[in-house]
Simulated assay, not measured.
Amino acid sequence: MISPGRYVQGKGAIHRVGEFLAQLGSSPLFVADDLVWGFVGHDIEASLRKANLPLRRETFNGIASSREVTRLVDVIQQVGADVVVAVGGGSTIDAVKAAGFLAGTRWANCPTVASTDAPCSALAVIYTDDGAFEEYRFFPRNPDLVLVDSQVVANAPASFLIAGVGDALATWLEARATAQSHAKTMAGGLPTLTGTALAKLSWDILWENALPAIDAVRDHQVTPAVEKLIEANTLLSGLGFESGGLAAAHAIHNGLTAVDATHGLAHGQKVNIGSLAQLVLEGAPTSEIRDFIEFTTRVGLPTTLVEVGLDPDDTDSLRTVADASTVAGETIHSMPFDVAADDVVGALAALDRFAARVREDAKLPGPAPYQAPHHGAGR
């Protein structure tokens, strides 16, 4: 069981970042893109002044690639930072974790969205410069600090919170599969009862609070449901996936990144397709799959291939996804049965047609084709 050294969440938490960083070092380096820094930079600067800490900020260039990580290592060493702080989303956070480890510094995360469970973990997802999955990098420790300002999260577009629900819902589905197969977790050993229980707690909170929380965030309000959903997306999902285990859902996400059409999607949007495919692979009860489709459609997540830029009749693209998701070492091999590429192709095609039927029966909106932007990978 592994976890970050300290987790802080609440309205106005960003105003205390200097207080907590002073416990970690005396020369912090912040990494954030210009958009994010425009929202929170003034508050961070004021907090650092109060804590008698200097302010240095480096601009993040958009993708957690090997090239960007190497560049950040050079910056950390040049300025002599003893703690590096990511401010932003999952890509910024993963790049800073990887760079902080290589530079030999402590690292901290200030997520400004609750779109992934990246902030709490001791691993980073590294992409190519074009946004395709390249590798997982594992570190010997978790972040020293994760600080989440709930109001900052609520001020962001609701689409980020929605994506976080997609990422977090996979946590329990993958943890229960890992527990059944007795496979190793991302923490390096067998799943603990604690990690598996936290994954289930995350699932329960999501089903109870996601819809009212998303409605509140559309009006930039922080309600108890919003606080619960942020914690489920960030802390509970982070602890649950890392100490509970990953399985097919995230492997299929990684496979989806091998297709150019998906590169503008958020991480959690692709994971939701992976979760549905995992349920199909498991032969889960039809009622369970139907409930998942209806719920995640209401949340605003994709449940069909057309919504992630794929054609269910495009066998070549589905084969590309399947081949990438079943390579040796992928987490799909933590399932309690063998999964081949042909199985993934079949699951993807089957979920697409069934999801469309479920949505029609439930009088939910039909799937709209996804048009990928011409830049970057959503993470």
Rank of each mutant, 00 (worst) to 15 (best):
A183F: 02
A251H: 11
I252W: 02
A187I: 08
V339D: 06
A114F: 15
E282V: 08
P365H: 07
G189T: 05
I230E: 07
D34W: 13
T178A: 08
A177E: 04
V259M: 09
V75A: 11
D291P: 07
G89L: 03
I293E: 05
L305P: 00
A377Y: 00
A258V: 01
A347F: 11
V321K: 08
V339E: 01
D260P: 09
D316F: 09
R57D: 02
Q9C: 13
W203H: 15
A225R: 04
G164D: 05
F20M: 09
A175H: 05
G366H: 12
Q269N: 13
N61F: 05
D167S: 07
V358Q: 06
I93Y: 00
H15P: 05
A210H: 01
E134R: 14
L173Y: 10
R71L: 10
N155Q: 15
S115D: 03
V69K: 03
E68R: 14
K270W: 04
A368W: 02
S334K: 11
F60I: 02
L102N: 07
F30R: 05
L169V: 12
G309T: 09
A261L: 06
P373A: 03
S275Y: 03
A81L: 10
N155G: 15
A199L: 13
D314Q: 11
P140A: 03
L161F: 10
V8R: 10
H263M: 08
L55H: 06
L281P: 07
I93N: 06
P224N: 13
V222T: 10
I230S: 03
A216C: 13
E288C: 00
F160N: 03
A46H: 08
A114H: 10
V321R: 06
